Amino acid sequence: MPLKKDPNGGGTNADGSTSAKYCSMCYQNGTFTQPDMTVTEMQVLVTNQMAKMGFPKFLARFFTKGIPKLERWKS
């Protein structure tokens, strides 16, 4: 989720500050809310959420192509 669309302005770091990297749905208290989630699972989740918001599925899938490049999955 783009941080500017996050109703909380981002997730929270371990010290309680707002994360500048991760949204509040994914990151709370300095840890990921679903630490074992794979890139593919995240892409499916995001695609389905965007479809619920009215985006066509093909467009929602297109928007998830960049997820593997996010810092969370860099290794």
Rank of each mutant, 00 (worst) to 15 (best):
Met50Asp: 05
Gln49Ala: 13
Met42Asp: 09
Val46Pro: 01
Ser24Leu: 13
Met25Ile: 09
Cys23Asn: 10
Val46Gly: 01
Gly54Gln: 12
Met25Val: 10
Cys23Trp: 06
Asn13Cys: 10
Phe55His: 03
Met42Arg: 04
Gly16His: 13
Glu41Asp: 01
Asp15Gly: 11
Gln49Ile: 13
Glu41Trp: 02
Ala20Cys: 00
Val46Ile: 06
Gln28Ser: 15
Gln34Gly: 05
Ser24Glu: 03
Ala14Glu: 14
Lys57Gly: 06
Asp36Gly: 01
Gln43Ser: 08
Ser17Pro: 06
Thr38Ile: 00
Ala14Thr: 03
Asn48Ala: 08
Lys52Val: 14
Ala14Gln: 11
Met37His: 00
Tyr22Leu: 04
Thr31Trp: 08
Pro56Tyr: 02
Gln43Asp: 03
Phe32Ile: 11
Ala14Trp: 07
Thr31Asn: 15
Ala51Lys: 09
Asp36Trp: 02
Gly30Met: 13
Asn13Tyr: 03
Asn29Leu: 14
Asp15Ala: 05
Met42Pro: 01
Pro35Phe: 13
Val46Glu: 09
Leu45Gly: 02
Cys26Gln: 14
Lys57Gln: 09
Thr38His: 00
Met37Ile: 03
Thr12Tyr: 05
Asn13His: 05
Pro56Cys: 11
Met50Ser: 04
Thr33Lys: 05
Lys21Met: 10
Ala51Gly: 07
Thr12Lys: 06
Gln34Asp: 09
Ser19Met: 10
Pro56Phe: 04
Pro56Leu: 10
Met25Gly: 12
